[in-house]
Design a protein around this nucleic acid. Structure first.
Length: 807
RNA sequence: GCCGAUAUGGCGGAACUGGUAGACGCACUAGACUCAAAAUCUAGCGAGAAAUCAUGUGGGUUCGAGUCCCACUAUCGGUACCA
């Protein structure tokens, strides 16, 4: 009987002592760098979802070692973050201590699963030797003008008391704590990711990401082409700048709308006749988050700014100006020209406030000119301009270009590309993060901490509560704050905000290449050799945040000559979620959480790994099943008992030769395509065949063990040793197959009559058509189906199928 | 609303470029072993008496459709007035 406990401990100990999986520093070998998203060490311990991704790439990593690559498969901990800090506030334990405990727990759990990580390169984002370089990168960003301070309306979490990036707000509430998010003015450090928007789109062409990942990144960046146009304000020298993707519709702009936060209101308050009403509307809008504004406004709200009119630059007509919260200050110019006939939102607004609707595009396919519009006509493909002066008669596509030409020639505005992507709010008013290494001097402004003074260490404090107004807890640390200006030496103050959790994870894959370097963030040699990451697997939920942020940092490092590749990751795949046994997301409150420790204790790591690979297609969601894991455990027991029917043999036996070659091909391909579930069924089928024959020879067993090793590394190492080998299975060459031997010589050919299966006949591979036809027509069953009928047609697809059509 | 994914036995799921639907596993049934049970082993296992019918629904293309086309439905995920 197989004793998984003993065997797994034995090999885990050996691997650890011998450093079996440590990457070699020999840069002449072919390399392969596999990466999984390093975990946040939460107090709950490892989730059964973590090992799904880790096992999948562990299998690839192990296969690559057998294929002769120098493999880097590293692990670390993304240990800054809010849960540790919230826990500290509640229980008065320093986050550093809980983090250390949690990391220790995670390490023990990860090691119990037999992943072939290179533990000698373990990193931790909270380690000053690590965040020294996170701070260093920030300073480089600052030096190049990509980090800047801005006072702007930000999302403010009423629970965490921190500003959040737009990306961190989910359904109007804080992604982390679930509290409502409101708008608040706050001075923040920002990173200019928007400067890289176009390159973040373009360079996707050069990498091998799943199509759905590329699509999601592109949609998030949200490029649109259009024009900025100035609308003059009547009786002033001022004008309002708007952005539009449909400059061909300007003749139909019958009013304008600006966002409630638009500075235009303050600037012209003296002219506004209903200022108090306008102010009231502004205040109401400020109370709402972007989400609420969107959600609550199925019915449009707004108010006219009385006393001010604008001039449509093409019709020269006087038009009214409105304020409404469906226009967002954060996109475009915060002001729009409203074309109710050709924009659905404008249409709804115009209907509600009885504003003029002017048709300037007609449809080629339906008559919309002679009836009342029920909705805006927005088609570009089948649109033609009407009532539009010099544009009249042009197809919409041409009209757009013609309109932009006109606008530019007459200095009314210019062609403009916009992105939905916004700059990255990089400040957090929190304790448990990397201090932002900046000093404010009355005379010199913001000055970076000198690089030789890095790391700027996080001071040890007792009081982690954020300040009343949402300041960082560090704001109370007067000793730490007060310093001297690195530039002029006068008294100055440190920045008290810290970095977001995304900071440490934006470059960790680089540090793995050279984790103990205290001179540089990574040595040039290590970068040249290991870059880029060959295969990065992670969750779909990180496609728009982490993946985009780290690509941005990488591109910046490329621009300043610090990394050799434009893109950090050559290939990106994603895994599906694991749900509870009831098909719902695992959560404490639902009581459906599966603890990996329990599974390892009851079934062993190999069973656990095999089950997670067998449970379903890797990229799809799958529910956990205790019954099914038992089946995988039974399978491994059957593998173990193959020893009882082992016979001699240095070659594959005639009987199994075909099966062996097919299996090598199938498992090899499946691993590359992440179709692990069908690999496992291949193994099961093989075991069934060997058991049925009551024999397996040594050569066959060895090959089988080699193929299975990436999936069930402990048992296979043990079996390998028992077969008399003294060297580790981990570095044995991956088995090869002969294509010719994967094809069967005898084929059980299916015969159809009128497309329905009626019989099978046995033929030789590539038997000639006449001979097959004869066999088919002699078949007794077939005879009964075609007797007395007229044969219309006979179709023979060689080696696949034979179909007779009768009447 | 929009974008994307998915839909196959009691359950998880297989099925190459259109070519024997249900591989493999679970559950279940029967038998062997056992005083008995568990474990293990062996066999069976979509529905139907059969003809046949079956891959979410309704059409279509084809000698042949889970796979291709058209129109729907449901579930899950992403997104939220982006001018």
């Amino acid at each position: 009987m197989y004793n998984f406990k003993e065997v797994e401990q034995k090999w885990q100990k050996k691997w650890e002592e011998e450093g079996t999986f440590n990457a070699k520093n020999d840069y002449t070998l072919p390399k392969w760098y596999g990466l999984i998203e390093f975990p946040y060490p939460s107090g709950q311990g490892l989730h059964v979802g973590h090992p799904r991704s880790y096992t999948a790439l562990d299998i690839v990593a192990r296969k690559r070692r057998m294929q002769g690559y120098n493999v880097l498969y590293p692990i670390g901990f993304d240990a800054f973050g809010l849960p540790a800090e919230n826990y500290a506030i509640k229980n008065h334990i320093h986050p550093k201590i809980t983090t250390e405990q949690n990391v220790a727990h995670f390490k023990q759990q990860l090691k119990s699963l037999g992943f072939s990580f290179d533990w000698s390169r373990e990193i931790n984002t909270t380690d000053p030797d690590y965040y020294k370089w996170t701070q260093w990168i920030f300073i480089q960003l600052f030096k190049k003008g990509l980090a800047y301070k801005a006072t702007m309306p930000i999302n403010f979490c009423t629970g965490c008391k921190v500003g959040l990036a737009n990306e961190e707000v989910v359904n109007g509430v804080c992604e982390r704590c679930g509290s409502p998010v409101v708008q608040k003015e706050k001075s923040q450090w920002m990173l200019k990711i928007t400067e890289y928007a176009q390159r973040l789109i373009d360079d996707l062409d050069d990498v091998d990401f799943l199509d759905k990942i590329k699509a999601q990144q592109k949609n998030w960046i949200g490029r649109s082409e259009g024009a900025e146009v100035n609308f003059k304000i009547k009786d002033t020298d001022d004008s309002l700048l708007i952005y539009t993707t449909r400059p061909d519709t300007i003749f139909g702009a019958t009013y304008m709308v600006i966002s409630p936060e638009h500075p235009f209101i303050e600037k012209h308050k003296d002219m506004i006749q209903n200022l108090s009403e306008v102010k009231e509307y502004q205040e109401k809008a400020a109370m709402k988050s972007d989400f609420e504004r969107a959600e609550l406004n199925k019915e449009k709200t707004g108010i006219e700014i009385k006393g001010i009119k604008a001039i449509n630059p093409l019709t020269n007509e006087e038009i009214s100006i409105w304020i409404s919260d469906y226009v967002l200050i954060t996109y475009g110019t915060g002001a729009i020209m409203a074309v109710p006939a050709h924009d659905q939102r404008d249409f709804e607004f115009a209907k509600k406030f009885k504003l003029p609707i002017k048709l300037v595009i007609k449809s080629k396919t339906e008559d919309i000119e002679n009836k009342e519009l029920e909705e805006a006509f927005t088609g570009v493909e089948d649109g033609v301009s009407v009532n539009s002066g010099f544009l009249t008669g042009l197809d919409s596509k041409d009209a757009i270009n013609k309109a932009i030409e006109y606008i530019e020639e007459n200095n009314l505005g210019k062609r403009k590309v916009n992105y939905k992507l916004r700059d990255w709010v990089f400040s957090r008013q929190r304790y448990w993060g990397e201090p932002i290494p900046m000093v404010y001097c009355e005379d010199c402004g913001w000055v970076p901490v000198p690089e030789e003074e890095l790391p700027l260490k996080l001071p040890e404090i007792q009081d982690y509560e954020p300040g009343e107004n949402g300041e960082s807890p560090l704001a109370k640390q007067t000793d730490w704050i007060n310093t001297s200006c690195p530039h002029c030496g006068k008294p100055a103050k440190r920045e008290t905000d810290t970095m977001p959790q995304w900071a440490g994870s934006s470059w960790y894959y680089l540090r793995y290449m050279d984790p103990h370097n205290d001179k540089e963030f990574v040595s040039k040699e290590a970068l040249e050799y290991w870059s880029p990451v060959d295969w990065y697997n992670g969750g779909m939920e990180h496609t728009t945040l982490h993946l985009l942020y780290s690509r941005f940092w990488h591109k910046f490092l490329y621009d300043i000559g610090k990394v050799p590749t434009k893109e950090p990751y050559q290939k990106r795949t994603s895994h599906g979620m694991i749900l509870g046994e009831n098909g719902e997301k695992m959560s404490k409150s639902k009581g459906n959480v599966i603890n990996p420790d329990d599974i390892v204790r009851e079934f062993g790591a190999d069973s656990f790994r095999v089950y997670e690979m067998f449970m379903g297609p890797f990229d799809q969601t799958a529910p956990w099943s205790m019954e099914s894991i038992r089946g995988c455990s039974k399978f491994l027991d059957r593998v173990w008992s193959l020893q009882d029917i082992l016979v001699d043999g240095d070659e594959y036996s005639k009987e199994f030769e075909n099966m062996m070659h097919k299996a090598i091909k199938k498992v090899g391909n499946d691993i590359e395509e992440m179709k692990y579930n069908t690999s496992v069924s291949t193994f099961m089928t093989m075991v069934n065949e060997f058991s049925k024959a009551k024999k397996i020879n040594k050569k066959e067993f060895e090959t089988f063990i080699q193929l299975l090793n990436p999936f069930a590394p402990h048992m296979t190492e043990e079996l390998w040793e028992r077969l008399g080998h003294t060297d580790s299975l981990a570095y044995q060459p991956w088995p090869e197959y002969d294509e010719a031997k994967t094809i069967d010589d005898l084929i059980d050919l299916p015969i159809q009559v009128n497309g329905k299966l009626r019989a099978n006949v046995e033929i030789q591979k590539d038997e000639d058509k006449e001979s097959v036809k004869e066999k088919v027509h002699q078949n007794e069953k077939i005879k009964t189906y075609i007797e007395g009928k007229e044969i219309v047609k006979e179709i023979y697809v060689p080696n696949r199928i034979y179909n007779i059509v009768v009447k």
